[in-house]
């Protein structure tokens, strides 16, 4: 299957934090073709194990499979639906969005807006708070209630679109892009020899507090951990130092969350193999799985590679597919050499 097609399938599969079943099954099937063992745990974390020649150590690569969204919160007279957020939303992104509600059947709706004709003066200067927004399915109240329950997931309607210059745009690129890096790594790793066992993990509930990463790292207890996520792509109005360039390669994270020497060796590997990469600086522990994996059980030395992504947590998250390919290649090489690197710098 082509990388582009997997990106489309992964971004369009529903998987709100806490209900990741669909995307988990899709990923398990992908893993099954590329690993020795692939399964889903009781929380929907997806684990693929590719055995190494010596199995002397374990490297765990984690990318979260969950995405932000909403839950049906209350039903209002007339069949309108109030929603509760899952993950971090900018309320300004929401009005007029098409959404899909995963109830007893799939129901489509829009987040309601007031047309200019009916607005009061001064309205255009206001932001409608999330609690004041509602989803309208157009259906009668009884039809809504017969099909939907409080707690049903509400996701943005999502179409992965190919843009000019090898860019792709979709919701849930955060972090299906990272998931695709896992698959790309596995694809390249097939042609390489590696000593250690490689644990590929699609983690759940990252968007509500990096929970899946904590639990799977505790279970697997890897010798080295790699978090793969997305990072802020360059965009006017944001200082360059806070962003990474689309097309500039994976962003290797530097900061207290990450093992300095392992990170140096990862960078050296990229330089040796002439794989484009960039650095990003996280002076504080950030909001990725690395944060909880680093301190799971007896602790895990971490590195992190992120895919530059514009417009994070909107419905039009945009990236350069080339960055995913490069990150996959770099991480495959890292996994193939991890036994020596670990021996030299962690011990």
């Amino acid at each position: 299957m082509k990388t582009e097609d997997m990106l489309k399938a992964l971004t369009e599969a529903p998987g709100i934090s806490g209900s990741e079943e669909d995307v988990a099954h899709l990923l398990r099937n992908y893993f099954a073709r590329l690993t020795d063992e692939a399964f889903i745990d009781k929380f929907n974390n997806v684990i693929g194990i590719k055995k190494g020649t010596s199995s002397a150590g374990k490297v765990m690569m984690a990318a979260h499979i969950d995405q932000i969204g909403f839950l049906v919160h209350t039903f209002e007279e007339g069949g309108f639906i109030r929603i509760a957020p899952i993950g971090g939303h900018d309320p300004r992104v929401l009005p007029g969005q098409s959404v899909i509600i995963y109830g007893k059947e799939i129901i489509r709706g829009v987040i309601g807006t007031t047309p200019p004709h009916l607005q009061k003066s001064g309205d255009t200067g206001k932001v409608t708070a999330l609690e004041e927004l509602y989803v309208d399915t157009g259906l009668k109240e009884e039809d809504v209630k017969a099909r939907l329950r409080i707690g049903d997931p509400v996701l943005f309607d999502n179409v992965c679109t190919r843009m000019a210059g090898g860019y792709y745009s979709a919701a849930a690129m955060d972090n299906r892009a990272g998931v695709l890096v896992l698959l790309e790594t596995l694809r390249i790793l097939k042609g390489l020899k590696h000593q250690w066992d490689v644990y590929m993990v699609g983690t759940v509930q990252e968007e509500v507090g990096t929970r899946g990463g904590a639990l799977t790292a505790y279970e697997i207890k890897p010798d080295v951990g790699i978090a793969i996520d997305v990072t802020f792509g360059d965009f006017p109005g944001i200082p360059d130092r806070q962003t990474s360039k689309l097309g500039g390669g994976g962003a290797v994270a530097v900061g207290p969350n990450f093992h300095p020497q392992l990170t140096e060796r990862l960078i050296a590997l990229a330089q040796d193999w002439e794989i484009p990469f960039q650095k990003e600086f996280n002076p504080r522990p950030g909001g990725t799985d690395a944060v909880s994996m680093q301190i799971a059980a007896r602790g895990v030395p971490m590195v992190q590679v992120s895919i530059p992504l514009r417009y994070m947590h909107t419905t039009v998250e945009t990236l350069d597919l080339q960055d995913i390919r490069r990150a996959g290649r770099l991480l495959a090489l890292f996994a193939a050499h991890i036994d020596e690197i670990h021996g030299e710098v962690v011990g």
Binding site: D90, F232, I238, G287, M312, H313, T314
Partner: peptide, 11 residues
């Protein structure tokens, strides 16, 4: 195809 993006909530 084009998209209209915005600064992420995180920043």
């Amino acid at each position: 195809p084009g998209v209209i993006g915005a600064k992420p909530i995180h920043l």
